[in-house]
Nucleic acid binder design. Structure first.
Lengths: 189, 189
DNA sequence: TCGGATGTCTAGCGGTGCTAGAATTGTGAT
DNA sequence: ATCACAATTCTAGCACCGCTAGACATCCGA
């Protein structure tokens, strides 16, 4: 009946409510503050309801990560298509750093917390799409090297800059010098 | 009296016992398995004893991280001095990846878990020494760029490779291609 | 209207980091 | 050798965590 559909709709709505709440709480107070109890109180349901949507706390983190990946893909795509010819790499790389800076908790969820997201051949479509965006800007510069390996190296370099920078591991006063150096290395030859 | 010194000696001994136990447990079963209770049982003391040595669980993780940094510095130094002329960067980079691979829990402690270790100007001596080793291999290649910024970019690139690789984020079949590409980028010009 | 399925909640288990206060141990002076 | 004191260690417990069994309420189709 139609009620069935309404129920499913409401369920889906509540699921995104949970994911959004988790994300906001994580950005506001860090992931350790995102507990099932607090999350339940926030969405005004009891704890077991959360377990009817997700297998456990980890699955909620994974969901936030997945949402972030989808978002990230959109950011990449927008940056790449809006960039001047030849400036695609710079635009995407800058977008990567900006995203990591603006959404540190989501970034953390994607790259260090998520454990249920397969990153290999059977990765979710959103993840492959995100990698494809990175591939699109790096592969043309690969020259005679393997374009996949070259892209991975490029991704790793940007990612290292983002993650070390996010944790305060790099000198703030050199912030603006780093990305140009990196871009220079990848485009020079 | 002399007893005082003996006591301090025994205390220091017990402290390294704790750190070593934490490290071994983390490498064996992951950091979440390193609980105060298990740690206490392992060293055959009650939990409060741990708190007479460390401010809390986090401080123990920090201690493991610091020990790892000291070790890492030694590895770098050995790799660099043993390398053939011109091969220093390759040797240190490989040592970095090898260390991350051989001691994933320590690596995690250093770069994602440790929160009490200042990484800036007032970083511990061991950390500055480790960075100095990296600086020694990158700065000569900086050309007309700022050697500090150049070193940070180089470090970030290797670090990205190490951390993404450790978490299974990179294709295993491209493992051996990645480092040569990276070295090529940093030495080509 | 009513029986059954669906959904939600209350209450609780075993575990966590951490700590107050009791108990024990060792020390130095008498 | 004895004793008072200080340092050390332990027992017991708090508040919180993720998670779940079973009671309760609600809604639907016949």
């Amino acid at each position: 009946m139609a009620t069935q559909q309404r129920r499913e709709r409401e369920r889906a709505q509540r699921e995104t409510l949970i994911v959004n709440a988790a994300r906001e709480m994580a950005e506001a107070d860090g992931w350790p503050a995102v507990t099932i109890r607090r999350l339940a109180e926030r969405i005004e349901y009891s704890q077991p309801v959360l377990y009817s949507h997700f297998a456990g706390r980890g699955a909620i983190v994974d969901a936030v990560a997945l949402q972030g990946i989808v978002e990230l893909t959109g950011v990449f795509s927008a940056a790449r298509t809006a960039a001047a010819p030849g400036g695609e790499l710079a635009a995407v790389a800058q977008a990567y750093l900006d995203f990591a800076n603006a959404n540190p908790a989501v970034f953390e969820a994607i790259f260090t917390l998520a454990e249920g997201l397969p990153f290999g051949a059977d990765a979710p479509e959103a993840l492959k799409a995100a990698f494809a965006e990175i591939y699109a800007v790096f592969a043309p510069l690969a020259g005679d090297r393997d374009p996949d390996a070259f892209t991975e190296v490029g991704w790793a370099a940007i990612h290292g800059l983002a993650s070390l920078g996010r944790d305060g591991r790099l000198r703030p006063d050199l912030l603006e010098q780093r990305l140009p150096i990196l871009l220079d290395l990848f485009t020079k030859d």
